[in-house]
Amino acid sequence: MDDTAVDFAVAAWREDNLWQLVTLPPRASESLDLMIDALRAQPGETGTIGFVSIAEELFIILRVRGEDVRLLISDVFAAEDWPLGVDALDRLGIPEEVEFEDSEPAGDLRIVDDLGIGPEEIELLLDDPDMWPDEVLASIAARIGFGEQFDAALEQLPD
């Protein structure tokens, strides 16, 4: 994972009303297309959610339901520095020549609205300067209902 600086990538989905969660192999985070393919491989009732943390600087949330792909980038400024971040910016149609001077999110702030976390709450989490990307994702996972599985998955990752 060093080439892409991905800290971790996980997929979560509901099956028989229970949340399932797996860590994704490093190859899944080599490109956004590979990540989408890995998420499509899961049998989620409400689609599959992917959480990716990159270089402890930013995160990407993906939501895949069939052909529908939704995306949220926590920090467009930081995304420009990482291959997966650039793929995500391209997918959102944000041209490379746009210069960002500050951290701001891009994409769908309503990505998990139907699961109980609206855009206002996501913005509050993103605006908290004391939270690292993995902490924001852990908070979102807990509020959706798979926080314990998320924490357990991260504990199993090599240092």
Rank of each mutant, 00 (worst) to 15 (best):
V22W: 03
L34T: 04
F77D: 01
P43A: 15
F59S: 01
A153V: 02
D151R: 11
F100C: 06
A38D: 04
D7A: 04
I61K: 01
V6L: 06
S74W: 08
F150S: 00
E56K: 07
L24G: 04
N17K: 13
D130E: 11
A55Y: 08
D130H: 10
L24F: 08
L71F: 12
D127Q: 11
E45C: 07
Q20E: 09
D134H: 08
Q42H: 13
G47C: 02
D33V: 06
L126E: 06
V98S: 07
R40C: 02
W132Q: 13
I122G: 05
R63Q: 11
V86N: 03
S103C: 12
G116K: 10
L58F: 12
M131E: 11
I111E: 11
A152N: 02
V112C: 11
I54S: 01
I60P: 05
L84M: 05
R110G: 15
P26H: 07
W132H: 14
I117A: 11
E104P: 09
L137D: 04
P133C: 09
D108V: 15
S103K: 14
L21A: 09
F100K: 00
D7H: 08
I60R: 02
R110W: 07
G66K: 07
D75W: 08
R40D: 06
I54P: 02
L71S: 08
F8A: 01
L72E: 10
L32A: 00
G116R: 13
I36K: 03
I94N: 07
L157V: 00
R70S: 15
L24D: 00
V76I: 10
D108W: 13
A11M: 01
L92F: 13
E15M: 05
V69M: 02
S29A: 13
I122R: 04
D2F: 08
I49G: 03
W19H: 11
D127R: 12
V98P: 01
I94D: 04
S139C: 14
D37K: 06
A5E: 04
D108C: 13
R65V: 12
D151C: 02
E101S: 11
D102Y: 15
I117K: 08
E123K: 15
R40S: 09
P26Q: 01
D114E: 14
V98D: 13
A138Y: 05
E123W: 11
T23E: 04
P95K: 10
A153C: 01
D75H: 11
D108G: 09
L126A: 01
A79Q: 05
L115T: 05
G107K: 10
D68Y: 07
F100Q: 05
P105Y: 14
A55W: 02
D81Y: 13
A78W: 02
E121Y: 10
F8T: 00
Q42C: 10
P25C: 03
D87I: 12
S103H: 09
E135W: 13
P43C: 12
E123M: 15
E30H: 06
D16Y: 12
T48L: 03
V6S: 00
M35L: 15
D114H: 15
A152V: 00
L72P: 03
L126P: 09
M1I: 02
L58K: 08
I49L: 14
M131Q: 14
D113H: 10
D134A: 07
Q149P: 01
A55E: 04
F8P: 00
L32R: 01
A28F: 06
D33P: 02
F8N: 01
I54N: 00
